[in-house]
Design a protein around this nucleic acid. Structure first.
Length: 648
DNA sequence: TGAATCGATGTTTTT
DNA sequence: CATCGATTCA
């Protein structure tokens, strides 16, 4: 026991040893946030708290998994066999868990579908059209955003409908139909997973108490990113035993556009009486230079609780800055520098270097393409995070066969697959099917439709009796997907390969009880954030030892020895939509984003911007980001001389 | 009525 | 440049 506490500093230890009552840990980047939570959980178990009384909630599957792994390995060391484990999951997965145990209360079957962003948007689009509105005027994505934000704020539809502003009126109308449609299809969207859970906990005393007693020690990671629904969820769950420990950093709140509310962390003291607050300000991750630059950047934000991150680490190298001619020159710089890092011993005192020590960050996903090209050109193994395996069309189609056979109400799924592969059932026929007007169709079409539905029935039978991996192989054959794709273009053959990969991936679920495997697979598939962990298992080495390319958002919570931050141009990073003026809050969020990017680095940061950038075929002149001018001169070194780099 | 083809149109960040 | 939707062809 002494052993695990000795790895902590005084403040961290204080947090770990605070077992009863509310606790807020305010921790700067790299100050050992996750470490503190995991050790707190380990400590609770060592102090005799039953692991199944412990809940930890994170935002991504990845951090949930990481935490689980850390706790598990630590628990083995104690050689004390526990037959239960702490419940560690994301907010959304926790929602699914609670909803599934209470579907009867919600008037749903347990095979409800989870709509992803695309599914929801397309449903909303249909509704807009049905209302006779023009989807160009009322962009489905935007309307979805409005509805989503309201739901995240735990706003109530009835109230919203009384609002008088025009757009709210329209959105309210769409919202209402959207809810009806989802109920009819036995489907929930991401927001529902939170909102329905909160409603359940709020309105049903017995249910609430059951979960309050089930999880008596609650931990929330990245608390600064919680929205109202998530806030209420934690509040309700912890109300009885009051053992809630939240960890967060206001400077790393980068999801307010998705409803994350800083007030949650800022007013923790008011919300929870007698809360203890512990500040972790010592950074263990970055060199002093990197930290100083990061501090300089973040200090320009006004709305921010005072905090001063410091480190005992050495100064380290200066921050490099490269002004590129255009985006391909920038990509070239990243790639050649990567090669240099790999062979040149100047770059690290550590002898062993790994490509996965290097991350290339960017503001928006479209920037990855050119970087990929450069990596390919120089033969550097790389991995792009953010291309979701489960978002691929062919994977979604295959999963839709499974979803539709379990939940025949799900029109969204049926729509996807009724004519994939081509069965000659087109748009017009589809409308008649949905209108329950099948009789009016030609007999030939009716036969086709019946045969399709029979296929779904057969798949359902297989799900009950066969292992998940077998079921998927069956779907590939029975649906005709294989037949169509194997004779197709190179691209189509690759798609087939991807689907086969899905079958391989499903082996993981094969040892679950019949039926349950597929159910769990579908659940996981809907909730993966970064598919990384799932894909990694299939081709271990090739992808693991590779340069990682990702958005700054995706990099949160990660650390790398070398970090490239690209595209530091006005309009791109900080991002501005043309013409539109950003509010002060939004500008500060962009700045926090840059701060997050900087603080990912342990040893060296490379910043770059391009003077010309081609986006959607049109080339524009870009000026360097305001952040470049904010950098402290003496900590910057200019790379290359291709173009006169910005005057500092 | 379904499939193929051509043009317009628009991209931040994500569970 | 790639996806989406409207238009045209079979």
């Amino acid at each position: 026991m002494k052993d695990h506490l000795s790895k902590l500093n005084e403040r961290q230890r204080e947090a770990v040893l605070h077992m009863q009552g509310p606790l807020l840990v305010v921790a700067g980047a790299g100050a050992g946030k996750t470490k503190t939570i995991t050790h707190r959980i380990i400590n609770l178990i060592k102090q005799g708290v039953s692991p199944d009384k412990i809940l930890a909630v994170t935002f991504t599957n990845k951090s949930a998994k990481e935490m689980k792994d850390r706790i598990m390995s630590e628990m083995e060391k104690t050689a004390r066999e526990q037959d239960s484990t702490p419940f560690i999951s994301t907010f959304h997965a926790l929602g699914v868990y609670i909803i599934k145990e209470n579907t009867h209360m919600l008037g749903m079957t347990k095979y409800f579908s989870i709509l992803d962003e695309t599914d929801s948007i397309s449903m909303i689009k249909d509704i807009i059209k049905e209302l006779g509105l023009d989807p160009k005027e009322y962009e489905p994505k935007r309307i979805k955003g409005i509805i989503s934000r309201e739901k995240g704020n735990f706003a109530d539809l009835e109230n919203f409908k009384t609002r008088t502003d025009y757009i709210a009126k329209i959105a309210g109308e769409i919202w209402e139909l959207y809810e009806k449609r989802k109920t009819k299809e036995n489907a929930l969207d991401f927001d529902d997973l939170l909102v329905k859970t909160v409603k359940l906990l709020k309105e049903k005393k017995d249910i609430r108490e059951r979960y309050q007693d089930r999880w008596q020690y609650i931990h929330i990671d990245e608390y600064q990113d919680t929205n109202e629904a998530q806030y209420l969820m934690t509040k309700l769950l912890s109300e009885k035993h009051k053992n809630i420990c939240v960890v967060g950093d206001a400077d790393q709140n980068i999801y307010s556009w998705r409803g994350a509310n800083l007030k949650n962390i800022l007013s923790f003291e008011k919300d929870y009486k007698n809360a203890k607050i512990i500040l972790l300000e010592e950074n263990y991750r970055s060199t002093a230079n990197i930290l100083e630059v990061a501090n300089t950047i973040i200090k320009k934000n006004q709305y921010r609780p005072e905090k001063n991150l410091w480190t005992k680490n050495k100064c380290g190298e200066k921050i490099s800055l490269y002004g590129a001619v255009d985006e391909s020159d920038e990509a070239d710089f990243v790639a050649t520098k990567t090669l240099e890092i790999m062979d040149n011993s100047n770059y690290s005192l550590l002898k062993k270097k790994n490509l996965s020590d290097i991350a290339v960050l960017y503001r928006a996903n479209f920037q990855s393409r050119i970087l990929e090209e450069a990596m390919l050109h120089y033969n550097i193994p790389y991995q792009v995070l953010g291309i979701k395996f489960f978002d691929r069309k062919e994977i979604k189609d295959t999963l839709s066969y499974l979803k539709a056979s379990l939940n025949p109400q799900s029109l969204s799924d049926i729509k996807r697959i009724i004519n994939f592969p081509k069965r000659g059932i087109g748009k017009a026929t589809l409308i008649k099917i949905f209108a329950n007007d099948i009789e009016s169709l030609p007999i030939k079409t009716i036969i086709k439709i019946n045969s399709f539905y029979r296929t779904l029935e057969e798949i359902k039978e297989k799900i009950k009796t066969e292992k998940p991996s077998q079921v998927i192989r069956y779907v590939i054959k029975k649906s005709g997907i294989e037949e169509q794709l194997k004779i197709g273009t190179e691209e189509e053959i690759e798609r087939l390969e991807n689907i086969k990969e899905l079958a391989t991936l499903a082996i993981k679920y094969d040892n679950l009880e019949n039926g349950l495997g597929i159910e769990k697979l579908l659940e996981d598939a809907s909730l993966v954030s970064d598919q990384d962990s799932l894909i990694k298992e299939k081709n271990d080495d090739t992808k693991t030892n590779a340069v990682k390319l990702m958005t700054v958002h995706a990099s949160k919570g990660l650390e790398f020895k070398y970090v490239f931050i690209t595209g530091l141009e006005d309009g791109l990073f900080p991002n501005k939509r043309d013409g539109e003026v950003k509010s002060k809050e939004e500008n500060e969020e962009e700045r926090r984003l840059f701060y997050v990017a900087l603080t990912r680095a342990k040893e060296k940061v490379f910043l770059s911007y391009a003077n010309y950038r081609t986006i959607f075929g049109s080339r524009s002149i870009n000026t360097p980001s305001e952040y470049i001018y904010d950098l402290p001169n003496d900590l910057i070194e200019i790379e290359g001389e291709k173009i006169k780099t910005v005057y500092l």
